[in-house]
């Protein structure tokens, strides 16, 4: 059912620009107004979500330690896995954000006759995730050439590396291929692994379908239908400079592409895609394991009822006296 509804949603999203641009000719709406609105929603949504998270206090320092604590000087502290201070906490978070450190640990448990539990490699998930995210980043950077004037050195270098193998014409960007493979893998595992299928919701399929359609429409334009780059750049620079113009020779495929991208960025702040922001605020990863060295303050530390020693002694004075235990008050 989740798969069906996600596919349905994607179909509708593709049909909208087909009808809107192809049928009704609302090119300005789809080329300017919707992208602006989506971008606005994206920025405001992200800020809103982050503020919503940030305003919730962190009452306890609940670091998950994945290595040796810093204790005695002659015991080697695993600084990255049980960070002793804020610097190493930052390093730990960088390793999560840049290299998906925790996902890298992934293993796969299998129950063999015996019974014998064995733990094999689960590295594919990490590989799929890293390939997708880095391809996405490179593609995003490459796209900046549509929005800024003379292309920057940085984008040139990134694009140059990305087309390192110089295959095909137009030259193949490696990331275009990698992102399609990675997305297909991430989607297939949700279809094929019974466990994954069981836990997957529409909210898991939908973004994958959406990203896949964005990548497919983009690569189609680059490699097959040959989009007019000059026209795209004209639109992009117009949008970026707030002097939007709609060039004539933009294909329907381009409008589908840009509408799906608009959908993605508008959907982004209100979905699980916000995991990107969440990781920076995750209390098990963004705090040092220096609990006993530096006191953490809970801003709402509640007053609770306790059983005081005086009450305790009052109740047990007689037996304590008989047992010869020292007392605060004799009577």
């Amino acid at each position: 059912m989740s798969i069906f509804y996600s596919l349905l949603a994607i179909t509708v999203l593709i049909l909208i620009p087909i009808v809107g641009v192809g049928g009704l000719g609302w090119r300005y709406l789809f080329g300017v107004i919707i992208p602006y609105a989506a971008f606005g929603l994206f920025i405001i949504g992200i800020i809103y979500r982050i503020l919503l998270w940030a305003k919730v206090p962190v009452p306890f320092k609940i670091t998950t330690t994945c290595g040796q604590q810093k204790s005695l000087p002659w015991i080697k502290n695993s600084k990255l896995e049980a960070p002793p201070n804020s610097f190493w906490t930052a390093m730990r978070m960088s390793s999560e954000v840049l290299f998906f450190r925790s996902l890298f640990r992934n293993s796969k448990a299998q129950l063999k006759p015996g019974p014998k539990l064995v733990y094999g490699s689960g590295i594919l998930l990490w590989l799929g995730a890293i390939c997708f995210h880095y391809s996405f980043l490179v593609i995003l950077i490459r796209h900046f050439r549509f929005f800024i004037g003379p292309t920057s050195k940085f984008i040139e270098i990134v694009s140059g590396l990305d087309s390192f193998f110089q295959i095909g014409l137009p030259i193949l960007y490696i990331t275009d291929l990698v992102i399609l493979i990675a997305l297909t893998y991430l989607l297939l595992r949700r279809f094929l692994s019974p466990q994954l299928k069981y836990i997957s919701l529409a909210a898991d399929y939908f973004p994958l379908f959406l990203l896949l359609c964005i990548a497919l429409s983009g690569t189609t334009m680059r490699y097959f239908t040959r989009i007019d780059i000059v026209a795209v750049k004209e639109l992009g620079m117009g949008l970026a400079g707030f002097h939007p113009v709609i060039p004539d020779n933009l294909s329907l495929m381009f409008f589908i592409h840009i509408f799906l991208v608009s959908s993605l960025i508008a959907y982004f702040p209100f979905s699980k895609l916000m995991h990107m922001g969440g990781i920076f605020l995750s209390p098990t990863r963004n705090m040092a394991n220096d609990n006993r060295k530096r006191r953490h303050i809970n801003p709402w530390n509640p007053k609770v009822e306790v059983h005081t020693y005086e009450e305790y002694e009052d109740e047990f004075r007689e037996v304590m006296k008989n047992a010869g235990l020292p007392l605060e008050k004799e009577e």
């Binding site: 919503l52 998270w53 919730v56 689960g122 998930l125 836990i199 919701l201 898991d204 699980k272 916000m274």
Partner: peptide, 26 residues
């Protein structure tokens, strides 16, 4: 009151890395 709770409700992508890590599941 607990950022942990709020964040953990919001950011799970159901990647399934945790699925076979729990002793009760295994």
């Amino acid at each position: 009151k607990f950022r942990s709770f709020k964040i953990f409700m919001d950011i799970c992508v159901r990647c399934g890395a945790c699925a076979d890590k729990c002793h009760f599941f295994l």
